[in-house]
Computed example of a mutant assay.
Amino acid sequence: MRYQDWMAFAGRCLIAALFIAGFVQKLADPAPAVGLLRDAGLWGWLVWPAALFNLGAALALIAGVFLRPMAVALALYCMATSYFHLIPDDPWQMSIFVKNWAIAGGCLVLGAQGGGRLVLRRGVQRVECDR
């Protein structure tokens, strides 16, 4: 394995950690997320599909399964959820807003470049030659 494959795996795990934390946070104390949803005129119960998406997406990133479409879905999720943090008078919320867009950028890079060779695959694994 090349060091790039290990770096890609580490990067996927670090991005996944954020979404695992989001899952745990929504599970342990859903009230803040429910409040954000309701303040935006949405149903509070949407916190549960969001929590499950956080967990499923994180596990997919770590395992490297459905990596490219999941990375694009996560980028779109981060872009959409950044709306809840677009509060120009609150520097803390604005930093979360910018971080969401930065994470979306990292996910788009994963979607474009893939996640290296350390991924779960069925059947024979394709081996690439070093360039």
Rank of each mutant, 00 (worst) to 15 (best):
R12H: 03
C13F: 08
I15Q: 03
I15V: 13
A16V: 02
A17M: 12
L18V: 15
L18C: 04
F19V: 03
F19C: 04
F19W: 06
I20H: 02
I20L: 13
A21C: 01
A21M: 08
G22Q: 05
G22P: 03
Q25G: 13
K26L: 08
L27C: 06
A28W: 06
A31H: 09
P32T: 08
A33I: 03
V34C: 03
V34L: 00
G35D: 08
L36R: 15
L36G: 14
L37F: 13
R38D: 00
D39P: 03
A40R: 13
G41R: 14
L42G: 01
W43D: 14
W43V: 05
G44Q: 07
W45V: 13
L46S: 06
L46Q: 13
W48F: 11
P49Y: 14
P49D: 12
P49N: 11
A50L: 08
A51G: 09
A51K: 07
A51C: 08
A51Q: 10
L52T: 11
F53R: 11
F53A: 15
F53S: 11
N54Y: 11
N54P: 04
N54R: 06
L55F: 14
L55D: 12
L55C: 09
G56P: 11
A57V: 07
A58E: 07
A58Q: 06
L59C: 13
L61Q: 10
V65Q: 06
V65G: 05
L67W: 02
P69N: 07
M70C: 15
M70P: 01
A71L: 11
V72I: 15
V72A: 11
V72K: 01
V72R: 05
V72Y: 15
A75M: 09
A75L: 10
L76C: 12
L76P: 09
L76G: 12
Y77I: 04
Y77F: 15
A80C: 12
A80K: 03
F84N: 05
H85Y: 14
L86Y: 15
I87T: 11
I87P: 00
P88L: 06
D89Q: 14
P91L: 02
W92M: 14
W92T: 15
M94I: 08
S95V: 09
I96S: 03
F97G: 08
A102S: 15
G105S: 13
G105M: 10
G106Y: 01
G106W: 01
G106C: 07
C107T: 04
L108A: 08
V109Q: 10
L110T: 03
L110C: 05
L110V: 04
G111A: 09
G111W: 12
G111Y: 12
Q113C: 11
Q113K: 14
Q113A: 12
G116W: 02
G116Q: 03
V119G: 00
L120C: 05
L120W: 15
R121H: 11
R121F: 05
R122M: 10
R122D: 09
G123L: 09
G123V: 07
Q125H: 07
Q125K: 10
E128M: 04
D130P: 00
